[in-house]
Design a protein around this nucleic acid. Structure first.
Lengths: 149, 149
DNA sequence: GTACGTGCAAAAGTTTTGCCTCGCC
DNA sequence: GGCGAGGCAAAACTTTTGCACGTAC
């Protein structure tokens, strides 16, 4: 399903850099993740992976996201709804944050350097070095005339 | 187990204000929650509730925290670990935030008005009214000489 | 060749639900 | 007294795991 000499996805490269064994399944999952700019849960990831390579089991997807998370490649998120969702981890600085539309549930990403430094400052003052930030604000679209639920 | 004329806990009062039927079990759970300043999961809540009134089932605890959450009395939190955890909801302003100690897993609450207004401003600029903020920063205690992993 | 990864299916863990009884308003 | 709440146990769901086999290095 993939050309033997198609270049590996960025995440697959990252895997290799971390010294993880690069199996076909991991390559596929890494590709699917590199290709996603949303926040899929495991079920959804599995669905996308199977389209690339049908010989993947959901157990492998679970095992792989866990492995990737432990290696700092992925970050697990909880947006409610009972299932863990995943996204590619940010670099060391410039974390991004999530705004969740209270009406539609849609997740909107944003960045803000002022927020970055304020948070870093607060944490430092409390005697800690910042490792990760998990921030999601839930918001309701500002009322405009004629708008409805 | 409780005096018939012992005053209701603040949360039980809140229940009544919201027009929720105030049963013995709900009163107990409200009491336990009012009495807690940490972030118990359902299992832990159940444990505490049973000590106050042994004729409570865990299904009721699940049903009650869900009801309380839907009514803005409780907020569900995810600090990792697979179980939802709960805390009493903040008022309309002055949300509080969580710093999680990366080494011990301990949850430390903090408030910061600068953060409050920065967030409100960001969200407003994106065209939303802020409903809730879920912020937890993971931090590692600042390295001091002689400190070790 | 060996150690580790994977598929399958069963297990484990958390949360929800059906049904009947009980209790609050 | 009626309608919703609760107990109990089963069901539903998500995630993990044991085992036998396959594969990357």
């Amino acid at each position: 399903m993939k050309e033997p000499n198609s270049p590996d996805s960025p995440l697959a490269e990252l895997c290799r850099q971390r010294g993880l064994k690069l199996t076909g399944q991991r390559r596929t999952i890494a590709f699917v993740l590199s290709d996603s700019d949303d926040h899929p849960d495991v079920e959804e990831l599995y669905r996308r992976a199977v389209e690339v390579d049908p010989r993947i089991s959901i157990a492998t997807v679970y095992r792989t996201v866990r492995l990737f998370e432990e290696n700092g490649i992925l970050q697990r998120r909880d947006f409610g709804g009972g299932r863990a969702r995943y996204e590619v981890a940010d670099g060391d600085h410039g974390d991004h944050y999530h705004l969740i539309d209270a009406d539609s549930g849609k997740v909107i990403e944003f960045e803000n350097t002022e927020l970055d430094s304020l948070l870093a400052g607060i944490v430092r003052q409390m005697g800690y070095d910042l490792v990760t930030t998990r921030l999601s604000v839930v918001g309701r679209p500002k009322a405009k005339s004629g708008q409805r639920e």
